[in-house]
Design a protein around this nucleic acid. Sequence first.
DNA 1: ATAATCTCTATCATATTGATAGAGTATACA
DNA 2: TGTATACTCTATCAATATGATAGAGATTAT
Lengths: 146, 146
Amino acid sequence: MRITYKGDYALKTILDLALNYNNGVVTIHDLAKRLDIPVKFLEQVLLNLKKGGFVESRRGKIGGYLLAKHPAKIKVGDVVRFVEGYVEPIACIENGYKGCRDLYRCAFRPVWQRVDEATKSVIDSVNFEELVEKARANRRNFVYSI
Amino acid sequence: MRITYKGDYALKTILDLALNYNNGVVTIHDLAKRLDIPVKFLEQVLLNLKKGGFVESRRGKIGGYLLAKHPAKIKVGDVVRFVEGYVEPIACIENGYKGCRDLYRCAFRPVWQRVDEATKSVIDSVNFEELVEKARANRRNFVYSI
DNA sequence: ATAATCTCTATCATATTGATAGAGTATACA
DNA sequence: TGTATACTCTATCAATATGATAGAGATTAT
C-alpha cells in the first residue's frame, strides 16, 4: 500500500463530511479551502467518491456534498481500496494474480502476506466515527494550547 | 510500501546470490536466465545493488557477481529501503517530511504510523539466511511432490 | 431570469516504470 | 599479445501514473 495525494485527499474529504454529518451539505469550494486542495482536482475526487457510494450530492443553488452512510460504517480501508485500487504491498499478493512462474514456492511470499495482513488489520479497524472523535479532540487540544 | 519489479528483481537476485554464497561468482547471464529477468534490466539492478554495498563484482573472463556480506547480515527491509527509496505507507510519515499544514493534529497520522511500524517489524525481521533455508526446503518439497 | 452549484470530458506537464541499445573497460588464458 | 567473456556506464524509449488545469454543460433555489 502506498497512499498518493488522490487517496489522501479522498480520506480528508470524507473526514470533513463526517465532521459535518447531520449538518447539511458542504460545497466543493468550502472543502477545497479548508483542506487546501485544488478545486478542480477535488471535483474529480468527489465524483469518484460518489461513484464508489461514499458520498451523495445535491445540485443547484444550495447544493453540495454529504456522506452517503453513517461515519461508523465507513472504514479507512474501504476508501483506500476503492480510490487507490489496491492495498497489497506487491502485485503478486493481489487477488486473482497470475504471472509468476512458481508463486507458491516463492520464499518472499510469506513475507508479503504478513505485511498485507498487518496492514489490513490496521486500516480495516479504523472507521470515520472514531476519526471524528479524534479530530475534535485534537482541535480542542490545539485551541487550549495557544 | 509498494514493491515494484525493480525491488522484486533486486530481492530475488540477492536470494540467488545467497544460495550461491561461498560458491564462487554468478554471471548476469545465469541470474537473468534463472530469475527470468531481462539481461539489460538486471545489469542496472546489479550496478545499483553494488552501489548500495549489497553485492561485489569480478570483471573479466571468469567474472560475475557475489554477495558482499553474509546472508544473515542482509535484511529484506535493507534492500527494499535502498532500492525502492522508501518503505512508509505515505510520504508524510517519511523522515524529515515537511509540507503538511498541521502534521501533528492529523487524525490519520496514527493510522499510517501503525501501518508503518507493522510493516517494518515484518521486513526487518527477515534476513537472507532464513530465506535461503526456506527456498531450499521449498525446492525439496517440490521435487518430492512430483 | 440568474446566480450558485454540481457534472463531465479533455488536456496537460512531469515523473515513474520497465525495458532496450550500444559503446566502453577489465581480465583469464591460449 | 590477441581474443573471448565478462562487467560498466550512459542514453534513450514507450507506456502509464500522477497531480493539476480548463471549459462547456446541467440543475435548482430564489
